[in-house]
Design a protein around this nucleic acid. Structure first.
Lengths: 294, 294
DNA sequence: GGAAATATCTGACTAAAATCAGGCAATGAG
DNA sequence: CTCATTGCCTGATTTTAGTCAGATATTTCC
């Protein structure tokens, strides 16, 4: 275990030295690195200022200043989107901003190339596959679960994605209205809890637990963003929700699922859930599960 | 290939975001990060100021300032070592500097721990082994070969290590004097060339080529530091020296080696060298090789 | 011994990164 | 309609990082 920690520290040292040097050399050449980073984050489709700040971990004043600098240089514009919250602003790249991002992308490619160059073909292949693995697992380990109000922006965003996905995966489609009007307040303390999984300031999953009856909980709305599937986020959410249930003195938790959601069914089975008889009249449920909490 | 580059860029993004945040959170809490880094580099045994500067890539003025700051805070002292070059200074930790480094080490361990924590046992094991691999190969790709004067500090340092190693590996020991006084000037242009391999500002390997006769070169002093063995540095040095030979219009290169240096012999064979009859009277040589340059 | 080179230090300076307090406009709850 | 909140902006200010041109002391080369 302590050998693991030594290995991670060694990795940390090497990587920050090597990437730090290269990043500055390639991307911070004639402009502050923070400006390049924010240009990247805006991306071709633009992004809400709010999100830029969160993703890069910037103070709102500082973020504003950087955007203003980009505006002065003619690389980006920010404006509030018509129809949406007029306070929130949205940053977009201008034409020359796009050009600039392409230039940065080319530099970034050179940077990557320069890391491969000195290696033999075999070493390069091994490095790339190890990097892919580290990237995957580092993202997994960077995901944090936070209890939030189910009406909060993050929770709402996840639920939106979740319902979209149900519509596209259920052969019969999905109508949120028909899904027995679930009261969001059920997922707020003290009757329940709603968790959001987040990575680098963005939401990548959610799940809620509510009280069905005394000592009996129900888990619903368990969703994991496609970009982080296979990293064990679903299981972490499930286990965290069960922990909440235990704290609330629940003895059993139930949940239901649609036939087409096979990964979910697999997750539930392997987490100790047993299939039981139908316990509700959810028109989209085909399987009903229950687990006794220790 | 372009997929490889995309993978590296993704790795770069994830890693700088994740490690950057954690490093600042853990190590830069109440002091500039550069100060923490320099404290680390001084280490428990102390270090020459020169080396600190090189390892961290700092301007001499800036390094001096940082050391002064640490001195003011009572964490380190710098003084010239008695008996050694009076211009060069040596930095040491004070008692409270040691305490501070221990504190930083503990934080660093926590940091590593925090990366493992959210993962399952299996994921953690995979991440650690992938990190070890990335670290190895990133160090390999960070190694640069530079032609230098064989009398330069870097070259001399490597040669010192090299001769030390010969003394400890040859059963009969090694006396540099007996090794047919090789003139260092032979390895300077235009008659020859001396390469040093360096990583993060430190020297980790070397090798030289000189002119034995018109159109005939000899490679000598090929050495790779134990800390970077197995990364292909020896082969890179050898190939670079051959390239120099080609540029100098040499048609063939020769070299000799001691019986006990089996890895070297393996390297030469697999690089296209053929064993030939004894061509010199080096008392420490048992095998003589030659390769025709294309 | 004198000139050139080396190793560090100092002062003056700049740029980048970041924080803080206050301000304004849009929004939402009551 | 009012008032607290939210999202962003501005000006003032600080900290961190880094550069550059000498200054000083020591060593090395001739």
């Amino acid at each position: 275990m302590s050998a693991d920690i030594a290995a991670i520290r060694q990795f940390n040292r090497t990587v920050t030295r090597r990437l730090g040097v290269l990043n500055e050399k390639y991307l911070g050449r004639d402009r502050p690195l923070a400006e390049s980073r924010i240009l990247f984050e805006i991306g071709s489709k633009g992004a809400p200022v709010r999100e830029l700040r969160e993703r890069l971990g910037l103070d709102s004043g500082y973020a504003s200043r950087l955007l203003r600098a980009l505006e002065r240089k003619g690389f980006a514009t920010t404006a509030s989107k018509a129809g949406e919250d007029g306070r929130a602003k949205f940053a977009r790249l201008t034409r020359s901003g796009h050009t600039e991002v392409r230039r940065l992308n080319a530099l970034s490619d050179d940077l990557a190339q320069s890391m491969l160059e000195p290696l033999t073909r075999e070493q390069a292949a091994r490095m790339v596959s190890a990097m892919t693995e580290v990237d995957r697992l580092l993202r997994a380990s960077g995901i944090e679960l936070t209890p939030v109000d189910p009406r909060s922006a993050g929770a709402q965003w996840c639920l939106g994605r979740y319902f979209d996905e149900l519509s596209s995966r259920f052969p019969e489609g999905y109508d949120h209205g028909a899904d027995g009007a679930t009261d969001l307040d059920d997922f707020r303390p003290p009757r329940g809890c709603f968790l959001v999984a987040s990575l680098f300031g963005g939401s990548v999953g959610c799940g809620g637990i509510r009280t069905l009856a005394p000592r009996m909980g129900e888990i619903k709305r368990l969703w994991v963003s496609p970009q982080v599937r296979g990293l064990g986020v679903g299981r972490r959410l499930l286990e965290a929700l069960e922990r909440v249930g235990r704290e609330r003195k629940m003895r059993r938790v139930r949940l239901d699922t649609h036939e087409s959601l096979t990964e979910a069914r697999h997750l539930y089975r392997s987490s100790g859930y047993k299939e039981i008889a139908q316990f509700n009249d959810n028109p989209y449920a085909h399987h009903w599960f229950e687990k006794t909490l220790e």
